[in-house]
C-alpha cells in the first residue's frame, strides 16, 4: 500500500505508523463526563468501508496525516495534513 504524503509525495506503507481513528472528538480535558471519555479512549466504530484515520509519516517528514482509506479494498481516496479540513491548521 502507498500513501501520498502531501509534503513528501507517494511513499510506501513502511514509512508510516498507524495512529488511530480520526473521526473522534476529544472531550474537553476538564470534563468529567466518564461516558464521553470512555467512548473516546475505547469505543471504535470499525466500519467496513471508508474510514478516516491518522497516519504519521514517521519515516519521513514526521507529520501526522488524515487518510481516508477503504478498509475493504485499502484504496485511499484522500490524504491531508492532520487535523484535517475541520479545525484550523494550515500548511505553512
Amino acid at each position: 500500500m502507498r500513501i501520498t504524503c502531501p509534503h513528501c509525495g507517494p511513499r510506501d506503507l513502511q514509512e508510516f505508523s498507524y495512529q488511530g481513528d480520526a473521526t473522534l472528538t476529544r472531550p474537553d480535558p476538564a470534563s468529567t463526563d466518564q461516558d464521553a471519555w470512555n467512548a473516546y479512549v475505547y469505543d471504535r466504530a470499525n466500519p467496513a468501508g471508508e474510514h478516516r484515520e491518522f497516519w504519521q509519516h514517521s519515516g519521513g517528514c514526521r507529520k501526522h496525516l488524515v487518510v481516508t482509506r477503504n478498509t475493504l479494498t485499502h484504496a485511499i481516496s484522500g490524504v491531508d495534513f492532520a487535523p484535517g479540513k475541520r479545525g484550523g491548521r494550515k500548511r505553512s
Partner: peptide, 14 residues
C-alpha cells in the same frame, strides 16, 4: 516523541 508529535499535530494544532 511520537506521543508528543501526535498531540501537537492532531489534538492541539494551535
Amino acid at each position: 516523541m511520537q506521543h508528543l508529535e501526535y498531540y501537537l499535530d492532531c489534538i492541539w494544532p494551535d
